[in-house]
Structure formats: C-alpha cells, structure tokens
C-alpha cells in the first residue's frame, strides 16, 4: 500500500470541507477523482501536500507506512509526493532551472544521495523537456510568470517528470488545455507511469481519461467519496452529470 487515507476530516477557516475520506492507493495504480465544483478535490490534494491553511481535525493518512500528517510539506515532497497545482503560482525572478536544480538537490540531500552536477542536470532536463514538448526558453524564464494557462500546466508536468515522484497528484492539470496540450500532458503522465509509482488525477472531464486510463474512478461530493468504480464510471458521469449520485446518497 502506497497511500492509505482513513476517515479524513479537514477544515479551512473553521469550515468543514473534508468529511470522512477513505481512499487506498497502491503502487502501479492510477486513480481519478471527479466531483462537482467545491466538493473538496483541491482541498484533499492540498491536505496531502501539507498546506498549512487546511486543518486536519480527524482521521489518518499513511504514506509508505509513514504517518504523512506528521511530515512537513517539504519532507513529503522529498519522500516522493508531488502536487501539480490547479493554479500554479508565479515566482517572478526564480528561473525554472534554478527551481528544479535546487529541488533535485534538496531531495537528494534528504535521501543521502550525492548532489547532481551541472552537466548531468542539464542533460536530464533536456531529456525531460522533450517528454512534455516544452520550449527551451521556458527554462530560463521565471517560474510560470507570464506563462499561458497551458504552459503552466505543461510546466507542472515537466517538473513532475524531473522530480520523478512516487505519488503524483494532478489537480485539474487538464482543465483549459487544448487537445494538443492535453495529449502532451497525458503522454507525459503515461510515460512516467511504472509499477513503482501511482497517480491521482483530479479532473472534471472524461476527455483526459481517454488518454490516461484510470484503474479507479471516485466521485467526491461534499467532502466524501460517494461512489467508486472503474473507468466506465467516468463515462457515465460525463453523460449523466453528478445529480443522480447526489440523489442516491440522499436516498
């Protein structure tokens, strides 16, 4: 078991958003989380990444057997968790290269590995860039500053490719992408997939799931997973919307 979420409750600004999440993710799996706006998808992603605005009030999360909630956000990243943000922040003045070099070396330091030298780093970067069909010039530019929506999302996937996480959480990485960018993002995810890692994709659209085929689809509503199924659930959701599930829950 890579990730085990047990009866997780979380608040933001005193408001209860997550209300008893249970989810198990094994290595090699892809999970899709869908659900209406405001249902708590990003909140779940942020809680897993360790955002301090979200207060866990109940429940437990184990990652690789460790109590995840006790780890600082940076240690979670160093342990192999990666969050691709729904709205990536801009970091004026911090170049993409600088960000990634620092990140790679901080992660290596934590793991007791040697620092990567500049030549190896550059080579690795070049290779990963091809994977997401990213333009060279974006490397020298400030992280996400002045990037188009699509470029930002691609940049998140590029960072993921560089950091090679064990658990990647992609929060609506497909939203707002044109079909070409979507294909690039999906290819990136698919190519990085292995028996040793797992991915959680948060999405509104079945479209992405044509490319990234999930093993499980979960529906989040009002802070709870109200339905889980295989990839066919996504198709059903796209056709019928979420109302039929909500009704079922009430009933």
């Amino acid at each position: 078991m890579l990730l085990e979420i047990k009866n997780l409750y979380a608040n933001v600004e005193g408001k209860e958003i997550l209300r008893g999440i249970n989810l198990t993710v094994n290595k090699g799996e892809i999970h899709a989380i869908m659900g209406p706006n405001g249902s708590g998808k990003s909140t779940l992603a942020n809680v897993l990444a360790g955002h301090s605005s979200f207060e866990v009030t109940k429940g437990e999360v184990f990652y690789n057997g460790k109590n995840l909630l006790e780890l600082s956000p940076e240690d979670r990243a160093r342990e192999g968790i990666f969050l691709a943000f729904q709205y990536p922040v801009e970091l004026p003045g911090v170049s993409n290269t600088n960000l990634l070099k620092t990140a790679v070396n901080e992660i290596r330091k934590y793991r007791g590995e040697e620092q990567m030298d500049a030549v190896d780093f550059l080579q690795m970067i070049k290779q990963k860039m091809k994977l997401v069909e990213l333009d060279d010039s974006l490397l020298r530019r400030s992280v996400n500053e002045g990037f188009s929506g699509g470029e930002k999302k691609r940049n998140e996937i590029f960072q993921m490719a560089v950091l090679e996480p064990t658990l990647a959480i992609l929060d609506e990485t497909d939203s707002g992408l044109d079909i070409d960018a979507l294909r690039v993002v999906a290819n990136g995810v698919t190519k990085l997939k292995s028996a040793e890692n797992a991915t959680i994709v948060v999405t509104h659209y079945q479209r992405l799931l044509n490319y990234i085929v999930p093993d499980f689809v979960h529906v989040l509503s009002k802070g709870r997973i109200v339905k889980s199924g295989g990839k066919e659930l996504a198709v059903e959701l796209e056709e019928k919307g979420y109302d039929w599930i909500k009704e079922k829950v009430v009933a």
């Binding site: 600082s72 990243a77 970091l91 990634l100 990140a103």
Partner: peptide, 15 residues
C-alpha cells in the same frame, strides 16, 4: 508570499 513558499515546499525546498 506564503503561497509561493508552499509551492517551493511541495518541490522539496524547505523554509
């Protein structure tokens, strides 16, 4: 910017 700091943390870069 706290959000920028968090972003860096999620990349393994500490305080």
């Amino acid at each position: 910017d706290e959000e920028a700091m968090f972003y860096l943390k999620t990349r393994g870069i500490g305080d």
